[in-house]
């Protein structure tokens, strides 16, 4: 038993104690897990799961412009990415509001335009080693500024979500009701979209545009199988995201795997386990439902 604990410690814990870059990566992932996962829960419940995907791609040209003008500067790429994400969200919102086109379709249109512009800008710049960095991130190379950005975004996200939690839930559950008792449904939705973009921008330098959504959506979708209220689902999602990040970091450390995909794949495995074994609507649980109580 003791040997097992020692082996586990050597395998899963000591890397974070011995190596500063692993410690930093874990802290970055802790922040991202706490901020991104609850956002993902709201996206899943709003049936906007693909919205995270769309917005993460929409960020690309902004980050690329920042990169083209200022080189590999975190500040420039962050501000550029944030501006591009907000622009796409706003334009899509305007089209949804004033035309019969649904939200998903208008988002798809603008993010595709944005993505194409981003790839064009990056490839015009030169060799594609940078592109790989932008697409897949570099969580093992997060510096102090990056950590501060993630910490700041996470703090803002948690405070804002706590504040508008009830209106957000009401707006998702019964938008017509909210419109009759409180005219600010659009404001809450807008704040939520800004939070989504902020988190994607924070996650993007660590995990890359392609992988950032993974830590947002997979734990959220998995958590749905473990709890029956929005608040609890959000807590489970953060926990699952953290577990995935830790597992992914450990595996990528020992087996020299690319970190971003390792984390997202770990989240994917946790998702599959949740779908199968989750107590709230999981497949195995459903199949065992033959037993029933007295009427």
């Amino acid at each position: 038993m003791r040997g097992l604990i020692v082996t586990f410690y050597d395998f899963a814990i000591s890397p974070f104690i011995e190596f500063a870059f692993m410690k930093r990566a874990l802290i970055a992932c802790l922040g991202l897990a706490l901020g991104c996962a609850p956002i993902g829960v709201f996206l899943v419940l709003r049936r906007m799961s693909l919205m995270g995907d769309a917005l993460s791609h929409a960020i690309l040209p902004g980050a690329a412009i920042g990169y083209t003008l200022f080189g590999l500067s975190l500040g420039a790429m962050t501000i550029g990415g944030f501006a591009a994400g907000i622009a796409v969200a706003l334009l899509a919102g305007v089209v949804t509001r004033f035309t019969p086109l649904r939200e998903d379709a208008s988002f798809a249109a603008f993010y595709l335009i944005s993505l194409a512009a981003g790839v064009l800008l990056i490839s015009a710049r030169g060799p594609s080693i940078d592109l790989m960095n932008v697409l897949f991130g570099s969580v093992l190379a997060v510096d102090d500024a990056g950590l501060l950005l993630i910490g700041g975004v996470t703090s803002i996200t948690l405070c804002a979500l706590a504040l508008i939690f009830r209106p957000l839930v009401a707006e998702m559950l019964d938008p017509d009701f909210l419109r009759t008792v409180d005219g600010r449904g659009g404001l809450y939705h807008g704040i939520f979209l800004v939070l989504t973009v902020l988190n994607l921008v924070a996650a993007f330098q660590a995990l890359g545009t392609l992988m950032a959504v993974g830590l947002m959506m997979l734990p959220a979708a998995a958590a749905r199988f473990w709890a029956g209220s929005v608040g609890r689902i959000a807590i489970y999602a953060a926990g699952i995201a953290l577990l995935a990040a830790w597992t992914g970091l450990v595996l990528s450390f020992h087996w020299e795997l690319p970190t971003g995909p390792a984390i997202v794949l770990a989240a994917g495995i946790l998702y599959v386990i949740s779908v199968l074994c989750g107590p709230v609507g999981g497949i195995i649980r459903r199949r065992r439902r033959h037993r029933h109580l007295e009427a």
Binding site: L45, V169, L173, F177, R224, V230, I233, V280
Partner: peptide, 21 residues
């Protein structure tokens, strides 16, 4: 009413929304 019935919320929480105004 355009309420998503798969939404994870309890009967009491829905009724409590009546206090909103």
């Amino acid at each position: 009413a355009t309420i998503d019935r798969t939404f994870p919320i309890t009967v009491l929480d829905v009724v409590l929304m009546g206090h909103w105004a």
